[in-house]
Design a binder for these strands. Sequence first.
DNA 1: CGCCGATGCGGGCATATACCCATATCATGA
DNA 2: TCATGATATGGGTATATGCCCGCATCGGCG
Lengths: 144, 144
Amino acid sequence: MRAYTHIMTNGPILSDCYCAALRTAARRSTAIYDEALVPVGINIAQFALMRKIARAGAPSLTELAAIADLDRSTIGRNVRVLERMGLVEIATGADQREATVTLAAAGHDTLRRALPLWQGAQDRIETALGGVSIDALRTLLGAL
Amino acid sequence: MRAYTHIMTNGPILSDCYCAALRTAARRSTAIYDEALVPVGINIAQFALMRKIARAGAPSLTELAAIADLDRSTIGRNVRVLERMGLVEIATGADQREATVTLAAAGHDTLRRALPLWQGAQDRIETALGGVSIDALRTLLGAL
DNA sequence: CGCCGATGCGGGCATATACCCATATCATGA
DNA sequence: TCATGATATGGGTATATGCCCGCATCGGCG
């Protein structure tokens, strides 16, 4: 009886399609985090990418793509946006084919100022979901 | 102790950021459904949108945006892509400001042929997640 | 009945994302 | 050392998505 079942939510109806539901959830949470990060001028995708860069040190675009589970070309473009914003620096590696990415000073600063804003969004989501759902989310994401 | 905890998955590491995790999950499932739908030439976003159009009958762009929980301008563009593909028709409503969308014959046909492919992807996801996670996903999405 | 705020869209602009092809650089075997 | 296959990017193309602004149409009030 799963077909054509719907879930009422704050907003409109969530589809019975798992994928559509996930996409909607991703869009909604993205909007929440993006708004929280407005004061520091970056969005959640950029925040997440910058954290990955910070953790990895000076990854190449290909390495970063693997870490972020994104297409390499996507990483290249996203990183260029951050470069234009002065938040990261792109340099040629020892292997001249490679482009290594590092956080610029402004990037570290932005990341530091963004952290509490991000944490605020995290807390809001956590409160909204409740502990049980949180664990479920983790399990679910791990399985996907 | 939630900060800086990670989950190992098939692929890379899933962030402790709920939003980043959801975005990753959405991308991954999108890829799965998109591949399943390749034979009929549409992607999961288009499939979902077409189903909403079919269910709504002849919604205006604004109505469709409300149903899909998407920005109106996004709906306008996505619908135009479907129109170029010959899958939907856009007409001016009684209110000349409104643009009403209906499935074209080819759209109904594509939707019909897509259904079993979509169901296959649904089943695969369901199997991968297991019943418990499924319910958790629904609960979670409802709360978001 | 005409003016004005409200409503519905389109288009401009920007990011995120993926796929494919061309180019540059490496690395390795002959 | 040199040709060749492998690897790292960049750029083209296309969809998805959101925000903002301008234009056209509606509707109701004076």
